[in-house]
Design a protein around this nucleic acid. Structure first.
Lengths: 206, 206, 206, 206
DNA sequence: CATGAATGAGAGTTCATTCAT
DNA sequence: GATGAATGAACTCTCATTCAT
């Protein structure tokens, strides 16, 4: 009983991964269950043993992508050192993902998910928004810590700062997707880094 | 004979506007010609008098959205004054659009178009990318002018700077769409403004 | 009141002629009322003043074609001279039509009509069959006259002979249509002529 | 795995046969995929497992009909004996098909195909024409052999002779279709046989 | 458990026909 | 009478989903 369950889960993961590939390649709506089945090497009917329908499979893929993002974020935020150092090491981690060949796919799906969320006010949408809000909140927390530590000008609105950073990352990902990876992401990293650095209190500078 | 032509054009615009609404609501792929026809109050067959098919209607809508964006941008870039002032007045204009109730729809479509472009390497995709590239280029030009004018640190990579700004704007729009307009866009404006201001050469500061 | 009626009839003829052209070009089913209207230089709606619907227009065209054929035939059969001479002069007339540029069209329509007749057991079908039967009957009569005149072997079945000739003509028209006029129709004329000639009673020969 | 493939092929044949029936009944253009599906007892969508679209199904049916005709012809042409005997035994075989209940359908389709070929200058059209040309050529060859053997007057144009025979057969089939099988085909056989017989060189006669 | 043939609703699209102008 | 924009039913074709094997 236990081994089969493990097998089932592994198969479900396999399907979800294949679905992600197909979704990225053809778009969520254009991808057919046949496509996905062919990608896993199963028959179309078999998919329904693991997911009740296409919609649920889509949700599973979306959730997975956001979970991945969240984990990356989480790992980065747990870094030690001063808040400012943590912020920069977080930035480094986020930017390193642009080099991951799989990232293009996941970014695409994230954006697709965001659009979906904007259109269907269902549970998934709220979950996706919740994840995003969490990230902003944690970043704001980090900003506040940096302010307390004298590494960020105290008259900056921490939440707005966090939102700006998140917007910049999300926007870069959107552009990255649009230009299929041909983008000077490092230049943006440096520019943004300088901008953030320039927000340090006057005394700290130099 | 003259009036009819005007009526026809008006009808074509009506259809395009209705299509935009439906596309935003349900997504481009999910939106059916029936949906659009119902939105205009016409029969499905009638649409084909004005657009040869769904694809062409989609292109018309996308083109319209991008054209709108381009015009806003163009108008802003023509502003007089120092490069720095131009940059800020441009920013003001860009941000004011967040208050336009129609903007949410257009941003959604722009993102949809970007995703489409990422997936189908057709003429439309290249057109969309071209528009984006043009914007970055003009912004970079402005940055270079600002550097020449001693308003921006000379060791900043103008293109990377432009890309950063564009990413921030696009990302904010993505978040704006995701959160259905409930977003502190002004906070980001101020933060970004401060960041840009902080990039001025040391002497200018104070 | 009289002049308008003449105009109406002229217009109806114009439409029927245009319809024939379009039918031949695109096939009866593929031809749209729009196509036909465009060919006459009228609006689609106007056609309905002259014909209650497409079906009736089709019937008018079919009837016209068969009437044309019948008239050609009739004219030929009224020729003077011996039955044998009448038969050959009739043949000459029939074959001369292969040189008429409009004939390809009419043959095509005749075959189309024959197929239609085979499929719909309606009044038109019976009318078309009646026309064909009449032709065979008149030809058989001619054959009988030739036999009485000692120009055709008396042990030939006159109806079968007539049917053979008609089959040959219809078959050649079918081939003519299939090969778009690139066909050695004269060779067939000569061969058939020789065959018929060879059926003369032994004594007559030489 | 082997049995399924056989079943699939059988189903494809079943569909093709049903399509032929429907095509004959309503005409190729008028026949809908729904009609055909209903005739086989399947749902419309199921047809697309076996044929990629209506056009391909039409081609399959046309090809089948022509193939049938070609095989009949081929079998007949392989007959032994003198060229003259071969010609007559071929005639017998061709005429025997008029007694085949399925022939009416196939003739109808052949004519439909010929009309199609006349209108659409596509690959199918050329294939159909090629088949016809081949038949004429083989018959001409037979005629030449008959001439060499002293069974046919040497001053007859062999190709024109072949064309005449083919025209007669095709025309009879057209009439056969038009009159739904109520036709004295045997009378034509005898008359044509006599005509051909009468073309023998004078010496051979008697 | 897996298969894959079959389903059937619904997509985009066409076109004979109508009717307000 | 003529127009041509509008209709809406019907077409071909797709695909999420089911179920007998």
């Amino acid at each position: 009983m236990k081994v089969p369950q493990a097998y089932l889960d592994a198969r479900a993961d396999e399907i979800r991964t294949a679905a992600l590939r197909v979704f990225v390649l053809k778009g969520v709506e254009q991808a057919t269950m046949q496509d996905i089945a062919a990608e896993v090497g199963l028959s179309p009917g078999a998919l329904y043993r693991y997911y009740p329908g296409k919609e649920q499979l889509v949700q599973a893929v979306f959730s997975f992508c956001h979970e991945q993002n969240r984990e990356h974020m989480q790992a980065a935020l747990e870094g030690r050192g001063s808040p400012r150092a943590a912020l920069f090491s977080l930035g480094r981690l986020v930017w390193d993902r642009f080099r991951d060949p799989a990232a293009l796919e996941q970014f695409t799906l994230n954006i697709d998910a965001a659009l979906s969320a904007a259109r269907h006010p269902d549970a998934l949408a709220e979950q996706v928004r919740g994840l995003h809000r969490g990230v902003v909140e944690q970043l704001a927390e980090l900003a506040r810590a940096a302010q307390a530590n004298g590494e960020l000008a105290p008259d900056i609105d921490a939440r707005a700062f966090a939102l700006t950073i998140v917007a910049c990352v999300d926007g870069l990902r959107l552009l990255f997707v649009e230009f299929e990876g041909e983008l000077d992401t490092e230049g943006v990293y440096e520019t943004l880094g300088r901008m953030v650095g320039a927000l340090a209190p006057a005394a700290t500078k130099g």
